[in-house]
């Protein structure tokens, strides 16, 4: 057992967990942040993606201890003050989700993709960059549309800042 201290969605937390605890379990079981999902045991589906120190990583493939001292953002921390993040809004407006299970990980990965590529995104790049996120419902068509749409919105939002 160890005490893991980290910041989650802007809030400092301190949790006692077994050393084998994965970040995703700390989030779901200890912090009740159940928006982050688990869809596989082989680190491939991306349902568990969160941001750790600004990078989109698979929280099922990181020990809680590895995240100690880090800044973690989960899907629950993305909307600011009740206002949806442009990526969240774009997923809704483009029907980029059906059952919603892959959605939190998809959105967290997508935000990271736009951060890295800025306005230079095209369909092929988005499809390639979504390689680590599996969706069984949407056939990706509307997810790709949503990411491209959000990339535009995020650029506008940035320009306005």
């Amino acid at each position: 057992m160890s005490t893991v201290k980290l910041t989650v969605n802007g809030r400092a937390v301190s949790v006692d967990v077994e050393d084998r605890t994965l970040l995703v379990h700390l989030l779901r079981e200890n912090l009740n942040l159940t928006g982050t999902h688990v869809g596989c045991d082989t680190s491939q589906c991306g349902a568990c993606v969160v941001h750790v120190d600004g990078r989109a990583v698979k929280s099922c493939t990181m020990l809680a201890g590895q995240a100690a001292g880090s800044n973690v953002t989960t899907i629950e921390g993305l909307a600011k003050g009740g206002e949806l993040h442009p990526m969240q809004a774009a997923f809704r407006d483009n029907h980029g989700l059906q059952c919603g299970y892959c959605t939190p990980g998809m959105i967290m990965s997508a935000v990271d993709i736009v951060h890295r590529h800025g306005g230079k995104l095209d369909e092929e790049t988005v499809r390639h960059e979504l390689e680590g996120n599996i969706c069984r419902c949407t056939g990706y068509h509307n997810i790709v549309k949503a990411v491209l749409d959000a990339a535009g919105r995020m650029k506008v939002a940035q320009a306005a800042e």
């Binding site: 159940t34 899907i75 909307a79 959105i107």
Partner: peptide, 9 residues
Amino acid sequence: DRRFITGQG
């Protein structure tokens, strides 16, 4: 959608 995109599903 709102609950799913905000992690409240």
